[in-house]
């Protein structure tokens, strides 16, 4: 009964698409005003990649073997670290509450936020990966597949990661907890992402792996926005 009352009071959700674009452009504008912050994941990515030759061995033959995994794991960690800022600022200044109160469905708004996150971290990480791959002596012929797999995979990472970020945004120290919640869910993307690169190195077709990465993206695109929206509502109530 109360649910139907709430539905009757609410205006019909006009302009969901315009709200999506408004949130998207607001997020991008905010990100471009703080360019230094936007660069941090990239610097982190480069730093982590630098650590491995120092920690393991500078031998190009050895590095070439582990390069696909390293490039993927480091990108995954960089995307993970930047998740904390995804809803934090909006939560602290109250604009998250406004998004929830807005007549447009919350999942379109969360999808816009996730798009901003992907455009600011996942896409730059994927584009800078070939540069770092040369440092790790990744065999030639797999660079395009590396970038493509990261473009597809990082979008899934952003979507799934946003669920964890939304669940922990209300907590004072959610950082480590977010990674504990999210990292197990990242494993399929990691498996097929590195699988694509390794198939390309072995001279096989990387297409099946990329197709599965695309399927994972489609699935999370369908389900994650609702989970994110539900999680945000929980975080703001408590």
């Amino acid at each position: 009964m109360s649910a139907s009352d709430g539905g009757a009071l609410r205006p019909p959700p006009h302009g969901a698409g315009r709200a999506f674009i408004a949130t998207l452009s607001r997020g991008l504008r905010l990100a471009f005003r703080r360019r230094g912050e936007a660069l941090n994941p990239l610097v982190f990515y480069a730093l982590v990649i630098t650590l491995f030759p120092i920690g393991i061995s500078p031998d190009p033959a050895l590095l070439a073997v582990i390069a696909p995994g390293l490039l993927w794991v480091a990108a995954l960690l960089a995307a993970l670290l930047s998740l904390d800022t995804l809803f934090r600022g909006d939560f602290e200044d109250g604009s998250l509450e406004q998004l929830i109160l807005a007549p447009q469905p919350l999942w379109t708004q969360t999808l816009a936020k996730v798009c901003v996150h992907w455009l600011m971290t996942g896409l730059p990480l994927a584009l800078s990966a070939p540069l770092l791959a040369t440092l790790l002596a990744l065999p030639a012929g797999s660079y395009a597949v590396l970038t493509l797999s990261l473009v597809l995979g990082s979008a899934t990472l952003s979507l799934v990661g946003a669920i964890g970020a939304a669940l922990t945004v209300g907590l004072a120290r959610g950082g480590v907890l977010t990674s504990l919640l999210i990292l197990p869910l990242y494993i399929p993307v990691l498996v097929f992402g590195t699988g694509a690169v390794e198939a390309a190195i072995a001279g096989q077709s990387a297409l099946p792996y990329l197709a599965i990465l695309g399927a994972l993206l489609a699935l999370s695109l369908m389900l994650a926005p609702w989970a994110i929206a539900a999680s945000l509502r929980i975080s703001l109530n408590g």
Partner: peptide, 30 residues
């Protein structure tokens, strides 16, 4: 860990529920 992290039991319960459901969708994929 997520259930324990919330000071309000109600929020912790709902958050843990969402995570359990997200997890169960992911288990076969993983």
């Amino acid at each position: 860990a997520l259930r324990g992290a919330f000071s309000s039991r109600q929020s912790g319960a709902r958050a843990a529920s969402v995570l359990a459901m997200v997890g169960v969708i992911n288990i076969p994929i993983i």
